[in-house]
Design a protein around this nucleic acid. Structure first.
Lengths: 255, 255
DNA sequence: TTTGCATTCTTTGTATACAAACGCATAATC
DNA sequence: GATTATGCGTTTGTATACAAAGAATGCAAA
């Protein structure tokens, strides 16, 4: 049985988990966080019953959370075969980044136009939290907060469909970063985030868009997507063999 | 009890409904079609039990279909209060059109680059069906097919996140057109669709993008979003009183 | 030894029973 | 007569039982 989720607080009803609210929100947030922190490796099977036991809820709730994660392409839902953690390919990663460039440009332009002082303050606060997470070595939280910054920016832009699309793109990007980011160099995006806020506050569209595009460049230059992806492809091909351990060996073929 | 869905084929298991596949796909397609054809007016409550009875499936299936429709903002899901057909406001419509312009431009550029001869043939076939629907007066099917054309174009562009976003935008646009399109002039988009295919086949990016942008202009110029929206706002405000009849009077206040 | 088939077992898919929340109506009080 | 409290009915939210589809295992035959 899969034990990788047990470190999570078991009596979930207390309402921790970064996101308050309903049970499926909590389950969703926990699973997503576990994926980002690589406690759940790509390809890992997510059994409904096991998850239900771990979180102390019925399969109904788990199913909703998985369905939501599937809609954001963070897990793959195979009919009659259950859910697995998604293993985005290099090509899929490229498509996500293409869409993100398009969306981030639009969001930046709208944010320059519409962001309020209060929203800018909240954004600054988020960047500080992001920096703190990285400085205390919490990579999973850092990646998540970095994503939440971009989502908050989308909210400041004030276009509902764009916010919803951005949510999905950010989730996928986080998974891609967790899977492909080279070396152990930290993500370090908080500095660029701060500059971006400054440009938006100054209502300087050109500067803001330019910073955002460079930010996008930096993010994917840190990834190992650059054609020398043989080892990564191999990893993806055999990911169903990797039994979740962070850097332990492969489990014996028959358990 | 709401009778507006009964005209739909009752033994759904036979697998009609434009979309083959699983039960929730069928239920989803039927409800969506009913909304487009305005057999279900904005604001109409969608009771899980009633729908389950109509389609001969359990609330589990209905719930999934409603959840999907909610994710595409075609129905509104209020916690503990059930689902209602969405009533997009003028502002929401504007936001959808903003996003669509952005997405359609990107899709057109990618389609010029990637569309295969086979895909172009399929697109032409879809436009013919769209024209036939309008010429025989089937407005609901016409709006739906027009939407499916744009979705197919997104598939030809070959970017997965973009396809998924486009699906949601097209659904919302269809609802907006059904709700706001002025007069009874038919939608008449098939001509522009054909020209667009020609430009894509000729690999003429500038011409294709230009046609697409004009197409977008035409679509929203046909809508009554232009500030004189008092009557439309009124309609939205009182939509919970309109008891689904196509142009019959309002139901007595106590049913 | 290996391959194909049948049986068993596990896991997902669907329906339904039960609990909780909400809205409406009635009634009582100010 | 208006307003608030309370009870009832309806509808949604959650858990669970049952059905069905896959995967795994063991056996038999080549």
């Amino acid at each position: 049985m899969n034990e990788q989720l047990q470190p999570l607080k078991k009596p979930v009803r207390t309402g921790k988990a970064g996101r308050s609210g309903t049970q499926d929100d909590i389950v969703y947030a926990h699973i997503f966080e576990a994926i980002l922190e690589q406690r759940l490796a790509p390809g890992t099977k997510l059994s409904e019953e096991a998850l239900g036991e771990i979180f102390g809820v019925s399969r109904t709730i788990i199913r909703r959370a998985l369905s939501r994660l599937a809609h954001e392409s963070v897990v793959l839902l195979r009919p009659n075969r259950g859910a697995v953690v998604a293993s985005p390919t290099v090509e899929e990663a490229r498509q996500v980044f293409f869409s993100r460039r398009m969306v981030e440009r639009a969001i930046t332009e709208l944010a320059v136009e519409h962001a309020t002082a209060e929203q800018l303050n909240e954004l600054r606060q988020m960047v500080r939290e992001e920096r703190d997470s990285f400085s205390r070595g919490d990579r999973g939280a850092g990646i998540r907060l970095s994503g939440e910054f971009h989502l908050k920016l989308a909210e400041a832009a004030g276009n509902a469909p764009l916010i919803s699309f951005q949510r999905s793109l950010v989730s996928q990007t986080s998974l891609i970063i967790a899977q492909y980011e080279s070396g152990n160099r930290s993500h370090c995006s908080y500095d660029e985030h701060m500059q971006l806020i400054d440009a938006i506050e100054a209502r300087d569209v050109n500067q803001a868009v330019s910073l955002m595009m460079h930010h996008m460049d930096h993010i994917d230059s840190k990834l190992n997507l650059d054609e020398d992806s043989a080892s990564d492809d191999l990893h993806a091909v055999f990911s169903h063999l990797l039994q979740t351990k962070k850097r332990g060996g492969i489990a014996p073929l028959k358990g």
